[in-house]
Design a protein around this nucleic acid. Structure first.
Length: 214
DNA sequence: CCCTGATTCGC
DNA sequence: GCGAATCAGG
């Protein structure tokens, strides 16, 4: 495969969108992420900062210092603006990044045994009152699967946001507003965002849900 | 171990 | 110009 205009254009587009090199390579096909990164650098667009008028210079500044022979031309560029991070994590177009607030089975350190484990709704005070409207309030999880989930969550890897990958369970555990928040992290089912146990509670046949008046 | 981008250097 | 190998890190 070669870098045709089309491919380069797609590369540029995806790169500026914040897609990772490996994702771009996957999309393009026939190239590795190394190839993508190499190309990105050759194109001189390693800088993903868009909104900022940082360094529009196409090819000049960055490739200047190659030989350490000469003393630094200028001590400091002086233009080193406070590195701004526009978007931490681009959301994958295909799958939902975050599950729709599943049953919070948060083992609060202060509350060893709540009446009913999974259904307990902790007062969770989130800073700004998030409306969280798209909430079909899923309860009525069979005691079996519920028990299974609790068991799994004891053995969860408790990974952080950054540790999430395509093959880790992305089920949130705990309250995001507290220190005791992490993701399940167990190996996810092929193609699914969650591990087996959490898949079972996340994807329910929308039948075993009785409409209770509000 | 999974992943990220950066750099080097033979081709 | 290209990209595998390697580096440095989360």
């Amino acid at each position: 495969m070669s870098w045709t205009d089309e491919r380069v254009e797609l590369l540029k587009k995806m790169w500026t969108e914040g897609q990772s090199a490996s994702q771009i390579a996957k999309e393009l096909g026939g190239v590795t992420r190394n190839a993508v990164i190499g190309k990105v650098h050759r194109l001189g667009l390693s800088n993903r900062v868009e909104g900022a008028p940082a360094a529009p210079a196409p090819a000049a500044a960055p490739a200047a210092a190659a030989k350490p022979a000469a003393p630094e031309p200028v001590a400091a560029p002086a233009a080193a603006a406070p590195r701004v991070e526009p978007e931490p994590e681009p959301v994958r177009p295909t799958i939902a990044a975050v599950p729709p607030r599943p049953a919070p089975a948060a083992p609060q350190p202060a509350a060893p045994v709540a009446s009913v484990p999974g259904v307990v709704r902790k007062p969770a005070l989130v800073p700004a009152g998030q409306p969280l409207p798209p909430q079909p309030s899923l309860n009525e999880i069979s005691p079996e699967t519920l028990a299974s989930v609790r068991e799994v969550e004891k053995r969860s890897r408790k990974i952080s946001l950054m540790e999430l990958t395509e093959r880790t369970c992305k089920w949130p555990i705990g309250d995001p507003a507290t220190e005791h928040f992490y993701f399940c992290g167990l190996p996810s089912q092929a193609g699914k965002p969650y591990c087996e146990a959490h898949v079972s509670v996340a994807f329910q046949p929308m039948s075993a849900r009785r409409d209770r008046r509000r």
